[in-house]
């Protein structure tokens, strides 16, 4: 009883989720088949949704699952299927700068970690309010209504832009393939 009570379940959840996130992210980068890569990406996103729950962001966790694990991953898989038709086993290779990039990335991680550890945060003693959706909805439609509408517009523009870019333009294609 004492053992179970003394365990900080939040911390356990964090470590488990964090391990999932890091491992699946590493697999995203490392596997040689791009479809597998996308699958591990989905795992990573779902784990992240769990992490958001530990941060009292239940609305965002839902959004994360729907938008990222659902829409984005499916879209990427569609993209892969449109352009790569054979030999998936070598569809996701490394280029020649892995070592030096690894060095830079290690430095980035160390620097960010060191800075966040060094910084003395002004931690707030308060808890996050329970009804997150209410609060976010109120803020988005009152104080942040203009960024909200702009974001909507951005999505529309992205939609149109993607259609135009990806549209089959036969004349141009034959021109440049020559």
């Amino acid at each position: 009883m004492g053992l179970v009570d003394s365990i900080n379940w939040m911390a356990v959840a964090f470590y488990v989720l964090a391990a999932h996130i890091v491992v699946s992210a590493l697999l995203v980068v490392c596997v040689r088949n791009i479809v597998h890569s996308v699958l591990w990406l989905a795992v990573c996103f779902v784990a992240m949704a769990g992490l958001f729950l530990t941060l009292d962001a239940d609305f965002l966790a839902a959004v994360q699952v729907m938008v990222y694990a659902g829409a984005v991953c499916i879209m990427v898989v569609f993209g892969i299927m449109l352009i790569r038709r054979s030999d998936m086993g070598h569809s996701n290779l490394f280029n020649g700068q892995t070592k030096i990039a690894g060095g830079v990335v290690a430095l980035v991680i160390v620097l960010c970690g060191a800075l966040s550890a060094r910084t003395q945060w002004l931690l707030s003693p308060n808890e996050v309010p329970a009804e997150t959706v209410d609060n976010i909805a109120t803020l988005l439609l009152s104080k942040y209504v203009i960024p909200f509408e702009v974001a909507a517009l951005l999505l529309l523009v992205a939609l149109i832009g993607a259609i135009i870019l990806a549209k089959e333009v036969t004349v141009d294609a034959t021109d440049s393939e020559r």
């Binding site: 996130i21 490394f94 830079v104």
Partner: peptide, 27 residues
């Protein structure tokens, strides 16, 4: 076991680093 802001930030840094590594090295 305990968890604090720094833990999340370090996790974020690691994830960012992995992503950055992928951006830099994938063909």
């Amino acid at each position: 076991l305990s968890v604090s802001l720094t833990h999340y930030l370090v996790l974020s840094a690691i994830l960012f680093g992995i992503g950055l590594f992928g951006v830099l090295v994938k063909k």
